[in-house]
């Protein structure tokens, strides 16, 4: 699959084949990470986080690829692994082949924002399954509210909508309770 095909697939929502194609890069990245002090488990974690960042980037129609997609993926992995090493108070030189050296700005990586997302991940594991399902169907699968209302046995589209916003309200409230300093306005 060419880079452009992978990007087109991600943008059209057919992520699975794209992820599968990108996954062929994992063994190389894994050995890079293990070589510089990581293990298989952290390598997989870093790689999966990189895939998420890459897919988020690529999904933006304004994104333009300036290198090979695999090189970019290596760059994100290297960045995240360096970040992780810094967290462990280590900063070895990472000499990876065929990689971009990306800075946080170039990557649009914001530590504060990532922390908030981590917090929200915890929150999301506390909301009801029904809420999770609505969120996933609506925001991730981009399904129509009519379809969702039918699938989840809501009496009407409106009650499904109301439920969705109540779930959202509840989740944001939970996040604020967990850490009152988090999730305040960034301005």
């Amino acid at each position: 699959m060419t880079d452009q095909e992978i990007i087109a697939q991600i943008r059209s929502g057919k992520r699975e084949p794209a992820i599968k194609a990108l996954y062929t890069e994992f063994p190389k990245i894994k050995s890079n990470i293990i070589y510089s002090g990581g293990d298989a488990e952290i390598a997989r974690e870093i790689f999966h986080d990189s895939l998420i960042l890459l897919i988020e980037k690529v999904s933006n129609p304004q994104f333009e690829l300036t290198s090979k997609l695999s090189t970019y993926l290596f760059g994100i992995n290297r960045f995240l692994w360096k970040n992780e090493l810094r967290r462990r108070n280590k900063s070895p030189e990472l000499e990876w082949k065929d990689t971009l050296i990306l800075s946080a700005e170039e990557l649009g990586y914001n530590e504060e924002k990532e922390e908030k997302i981590k917090l929200l991940e915890k929150v999301l594991s506390q909301v009801t399954e029904r809420c999770k399902k609505i969120f996933e169907l609506f925001y991730f699968k981009k399904q129509d509210m009519n379809v969702i209302a039918k699938e989840l046995d809501f009496s009407s589209v409106n009650s499904a909508k109301t439920q969705k916003y109540k779930c959202m309200e509840r989740a944001i409230e939970l996040a604020r309770q967990m850490n009152p300093n988090e999730l305040q306005t960034q301005a």
Partner: peptide, 11 residues
């Protein structure tokens, strides 16, 4: 952020 988190989890 919440929407982004939902999408990341599903992804």
């Amino acid at each position: 952020l919440l929407i982004q988190t939902v999408n990341r989890k599903a992804l």
